[in-house]
Design a protein around this nucleic acid. Structure first.
Lengths: 242, 242
DNA sequence: TTGTACGCCGTACAACGTACAGTGTTATAG
DNA sequence: CTATAACACTGTACGTTGTACGGCGTACAA
């Protein structure tokens, strides 16, 4: 060690290089480190995933972590891939593309809501991991009934997943909500004064949207609206219904 | 000072509280700090916007920055709002909704490509700023010809902008591209070995998509594809053509 | 038995945001 | 004119972060 990121990503594959057999046997494994990091991130956010806290959680010294992971950046890639690897991938059976795409969208939404820290990991190297590739393969299969060219198929999947990602991002609770609520009485007055009669459209629509959000309606209108739009868009692409 | 974030956001408004008149007059203004921060972020990324570097760029002591801005988090909000405020907002004239939406999408893409650091600022308080509100108002106006309910109108705009945001994100150059290229000869071999015959769909489509990306085709196929899909989706919502 | 590959760890460093306690300057109140 | 209060500005210091480096002890290979 340190093994390269690729080998760490594929550490469960039979062909993956295993560390030599000399020296004391490891008290924790790379997998342990990744799992502990995910637990930390789930409960306290990605910012709380520090090498020191990780070491403490695993009851090892700080620098020991670097025996199992090359550095924090690489760790984040391992975490993201592990999250993708753990998603369920039920067979689609005889489902049509609409149901399939809906399933894909909902599965990704659920994933991002369970692990909001995935939003904060933006590293292209994740694409090399087994979890990411398995997920990609399974989701492409959802689009097969549409009969698209390979490149178009990839673009369509990107389109769907980008929508889900953005929606999930918006649904994520704002860590500053408390501060916002605290200052709101004062700020709303000032904002009203600044706005005056300007921007009638924004004020009208903004107020309506704000009320709708506060109301007990669907948890997110944007989700229902957007998903319907995405399906509409793909339908315009599909061959005429059989 | 420190004035509250709201007053800092609206610092150019006539009703905004101006600092008292006693004491030496300020060598730099809040606006200067924000502008310097934007310049720094444009050239070296948001991570390089540190209080110390900012102070150095403005030729003031580190702690002086806190006289003009409440802290780094607030500064990021001011930067984002300033970027939105500076966007051009040409009147739509007699344009139909398709052209309008296309303009909005392209303007946002251009903005995000000019200031990629906007992706890294995720703070709801930005919504209180004059630039953000002016932008929202102008973009809502693009959707007026569609004749939607206020809440739907907001959802439709969110749909469009989310698409643009995700596309711009994907277009953003990976800071780790160098490292990736360096290790690629070795990694591609290992990845091939790990993959073997598995995931034929992902391997086929991935290869095609990779080639298309490398080819001299459109800078991004996902953009053209996605924008067409977004317009299709809104069309399904529109009243029958007059 | 010896050598060596390996897991583990303590110390140290540079960089970060920012709290705090000043210092000096200026418009205003008396 | 003087005293005061408000203000811009600054140096020092603390707690935090990632991680480079060198050393130590263990357990298998020769």
């Amino acid at each position: 060690m340190p093994r390269s990121l690729i080998d760490l990503l594929w550490r469960d594959h039979p062909d993956a290089p295993t560390g030599g057999s000399r020296g004391p046997r490891a008290r924790v494994s790379t997998g342990d480190v990744v799992e502990a990091a995910m637990r930390l991130a789930d409960t306290s956010g990605l910012a709380s995933v520090t090498i020191r806290r990780l070491a403490e959680a695993l009851d090892v010294s700080t620098m020991s972590i670097y025996t199992h992971v090359n550095g924090r950046d690489d760790l984040l890639v391992l975490m993201a891939d592990a999250a993708y690897a753990r998603m369920e991938r039920p067979a689609y059976g005889r489902l049509g593309w609409r149901s399939r795409v809906q399933r894909v969208a909902e599965a990704n939404l659920a994933l991002l809501r369970a692990h909001p820290w995935l939003h904060d990991i933006d590293d292209d190297r994740t694409a090399l991991g087994p979890g990411t590739i398995a997920k990609y393969d399974h989701e492409l299969a959802a689009l097969v009934p549409l009969g698209l060219e390979p490149v178009t198929c990839d673009a369509a999947l990107t389109f769907v997943l980008d929508f889900v990602g953005a929606s999930a991002r918006a649904l994520r609770p704002d860590p500053r909500a408390g501060e916002m609520a605290e200052h709101w009485p004062e700020w709303s007055i000032r904002l009203g004064a600044y706005l005056g009669e300007d921007y009638p459209l924004a004020q009208g629509v903004g107020a309506a949207a704000g009320e709708a959000m506060g109301a007990a309606s669907s948890p997110s209108l944007a989700w229902d609206f957007g998903l319907a739009r995405v399906l509409d868009a793909l339908a315009a692409l599909a061959p005429p219904r059989p």
